[in-house]
Amino acid sequence: MVPFFAYVTVFLLIPALVVVIGAFVSGGRPTLGNIRALGQPAVTSALWHSVVLSAVTAVVGAVLGAVLAYAVSTASPRGVLKRFLTSLCGVLAQFGGVTLAFAFLATFGATGFLTRALATVGVQSGGGLWLYEWDKGLMLVYLYFQVPLMLIVFLPAVEGLRPQWREATETLGGSTALYWRRVGGPILLPSFIGALLLLFTNAFSAYATAAALVSQGSPLLPLQIGGTFTSEVILGRENVGKAMALAMVVVVALVMTAYAVLDRRASRWLVR
């Protein structure tokens, strides 16, 4: 008991306090200056980029992942296809950072195989520079871990759909479209939105992939925070980093709370 609480205090609660208190302190005195510094254009645009990137990849990833999850759920439950896809996605969902950046550079970079393949059929993709832009390349790269994560999170919900419900619909004369609109859809909706929120926080908190891929500028909030470490620290600047960190925690905490509420609603149909 004691080691656990001592450990959590030192390595989790103290860091949390450092961030929260540091956000309101500058040069040893309480101030709102760090919070006000969040209004700087560099920070607001980074926050905006982060939110847009996370939202777009969450929505697209959730839709694609849901379709994939449904397709997988129709396969035989102990079959090789399903085992393989869930293991593959289990790894890819956690597969961020350096390797992911390498993989996309080797595919879409200036000498990547797809870039060259496209060039031979006459499609020029601008030397692969688009890959480094947050609203083009990064979105595609983020989808590479968002779609697998959606499969992992959403598959149990899709598998919770009982065949009896579909048969009941058919017995009462309902079509496939009617089944999805009036039975399957409403049952899956809370799980879907919950998974979408999880994907949002996943993309929002990601640092490693963007750091390994983007070498110039800091278009995203995590990169801005990382920048306060690596750049020459101007006095008081590291506490602006804490204010940015606090802003991130606030966003993530809000989304996770919404997730917890939805998850409670969703699991009504999933008790097995």
Binding site: V8, I14, S205, Y207
Partner: peptide, 20 residues
């Protein structure tokens, strides 16, 4: 306490862990 790190991105943890 165990689920708390889910709401703390690694990059934020770095900020807080610096003095530690």
């Amino acid at each position: 306490l165990c689920l708390l790190p889910l709401t703390v991105p690694a990059i934020v943890l770095v900020v807080g862990l610096t003095p530690v």
